[in-house]
């Protein structure tokens, strides 16, 4: 564990807290992509259910895995049951088939071993890299977003962004290098760059998130 990874994980926790805060205080899921949330639930299920076959590294690791699986299912429940009337499926139209299909193909090409757990892990890594796209698509389509939603997306982007200095640190300090996680993580961070540009130039200067 190093400071970048810890801050990254903290940022991930903050993002989920922001999302839950937005939904429970406004009693709505307006502007939130159910598809992105469903993809994250799938990402966590395919990566963290390694708990079931004994992949227990530390209390920290186990507690985080359980939290991410549990909170993602709770978020899906909130969107589908109590806040269902506030969702507009007509703007959440990104084609999931491309993302899931692409991640599946990548997991068969890039994995460390042709075994079910390794392919599942690789699938979760590639899927996570693109899971935010339906959410960014909604923001792009509507041309604006509530501030709290943009804070949520920013915290989520910061999470994988912070993993990059973590990988650099681990490469030099520990000789650890995980090329699949690194390449997918860089792709994931690049996907956020446009968003971050507007977030830093507008939202953090007190303006509303609006596309030009």
């Amino acid at each position: 564990m190093n400071i970048f990874r810890f801050l990254g994980d903290l940022s991930h926790l903050v993002s989920i807290w922001l999302l839950l805060h937005k939904m429970t205080t406004s009693k709505s899921c307006t502007g939130i992509s159910f598809k992105t949330q469903a993809l994250y639930a799938l990402v966590f299920a395919t990566r963290y259910l390694d708990l079931l076959y004994g992949s227990w590294h530390s209390m920290y690791n186990v507690a985080m895995k359980i939290f991410f699986i549990g909170s993602s299912l709770y978020i899906l429940y909130l969107i589908k049951v109590p806040f269902k009337p506030t969702r507009d499926p007509a703007i959440d139209t990104f084609k999931l088939e491309y993302l899931v299909g692409g991640a599946l193909i990548m997991s068969l090409i890039a994995n460390y071993e042709y075994s079910f757990p390794e392919i599942l892990w690789s699938f979760s890594i590639w899927l996570e890299a693109v899971a935010i796209l339906p959410q960014l698509f909604i923001i792009q389509r509507t041309g604006e977003a509530e501030n709290i939603t943009t804070h949520y997306v920013a915290a989520l982007g910061a999470y994988r962004g912070l993993y990059i200095p973590n990988w650099l640190y681990r490469y030099f300090a520990e000789g650890f290098f995980d090329p699949i996680a690194v390449i997918a993580g860089i792709i994931q961070t690049v996907i956020y760059l446009d968003f971050f540009y507007i977030y830093f130039t507008k939202v953090l200067k007190g303006q509303k998130f609006e596309l030009p």
């Binding site: 990874r5 690791n61 460390y112 993993y163 650890f176 995980d178 996680a181």
Partner: peptide, 10 residues
């Protein structure tokens, strides 16, 4: 790949 089987990252 060193230790990539040990997936301790989240």
């Amino acid at each position: 790949y060193p230790d990539t089987q040990v997936k301790d990252e989240l």
